[in-house]
């Protein structure tokens, strides 16, 4: 009898109420890799920064988890936590945008798709933005644009390097042209940051596409990517439809971008903090 059968039997014998409780704990206790199907104790997986212990697959990490992985303990100071999305176009497709926002806020506990703040990384100050794919596919609307701009402006004022962990399907259609303009707005803030000769490193994670790729994701002094992330401008399906041909397996992956010169290096998540700290330290102004 496998361990799973044992759990299944155990569940069968429980009374209904307790059965549900037992299931919740069990679901959280173990995690199955979506690529190699290996089952890992969630705590072990978390200790390995949600990289599969068997096959090295980088599973999705939420923004809180990512901040915990990168920022030194008790140094995180959030920026713009009280900025919230509205429904400026009174947009409604099959569901109204305001309802969608409420649902995602309830489901994720987030206000919108990015967390921003300052902190230390191995003792070095950074301004960090972390996109969260769980919130409407990490899409970029007014709030993502505003929070990232304030982050970059804070970094410019305080001479901090900026690191943005990208994970986004692109612009948020429900905010129409307001979303598109965030691309320009953030690029403008990055221009000022650059004028002050400050370091900017975007980290491209799965997936980074559309308007995010066509703005801040590609504007790094150094651009890092996680292994096997999907990175591209146009969606794979769109290209397949226009060209009516199957695309190569590795098309629009981190590895493909590295090969074509658009990414500096692919860094496994477990080494990301160390490499970021090393790069930042290499760019510290030489003391007189």
């Amino acid at each position: 009898m496998s361990l799973f059968d044992w759990f299944a039997n155990l569940r069968k014998n429980e009374p209904p109420v307790q059965k549900r409780q037992e299931r919740e704990i069990a679901d959280g206790l173990w995690t199955k890799c979506s690529v190699c199907s290996a089952v890992a104790y969630t705590k072990d997986l978390k200790n390995n920064q949600f990289v599969c212990l068997e096959c090295g697959h980088h599973t999705r990490v939420n923004s809180d988890e990512r901040i915990e992985q990168l920022v030194d303990k008790e140094t995180w100071q959030p920026i713009g936590e009280d900025i919230r999305p509205t429904d400026p176009l009174a947009f409604s497709d099959r569901k109204s945008y305001s309802d969608r926002l409420k649902d995602y806020q309830a489901k994720t506990g987030l206000t919108d798709a990015v967390k921003t703040g300052t902190g230390l990384i191995e003792g070095l100050p950074i301004a960090l933005g972390v996109m969260d794919f769980r919130f409407m596919g990490g899409s970029m609307g007014s709030v993502v644009g505003e929070k990232l701009c304030r982050l970059i402006e804070t970094a410019t004022d305080q001479s901090f390097p900026v690191v943005i962990i990208c994970a986004s399907g692109g612009a948020r259609m429900q905010e129409g042209m307001l979303s598109l303009m965030q691309m320009a707005k953030i690029s403008g803030a990055l221009h000022r940051h650059q004028e002050h000769k400050l370091l900017y490193i975007p980290v491209l994670t799965h997936p980074t596409t559309g308007g995010v790729t066509a703005s801040f994701a590609m504007l790094g002094d150094i651009i890092l990517a996680e292994p096997k992330a999907t990175i591209g401008f146009a969606g794979r399906r769109v290209i397949e439809q226009t060209l009516r041909e199957k695309l190569p397996e590795d098309f629009q992956t981190s590895e493909y971008l590295l090969q074509h010169g658009f990414v500096d290096e692919i860094i496994p998540r477990t080494q990301l903090k160390k490499i970021l700290a090393q790069l930042i330290s290499l760019h510290q102004p030489i003391s007189k």
Binding site: D82, I83, R84, P85, T86, P88, G141, S142, V143, G145, E146, C149, E175, L178, M181, Q182, A184, K185, G188, A189
Partner: peptide, 12 residues
Amino acid sequence: FRQMGIFEQGEI
């Protein structure tokens, strides 16, 4: 471009 965007700010 900096002023483009519509959002709320402050305590709920």
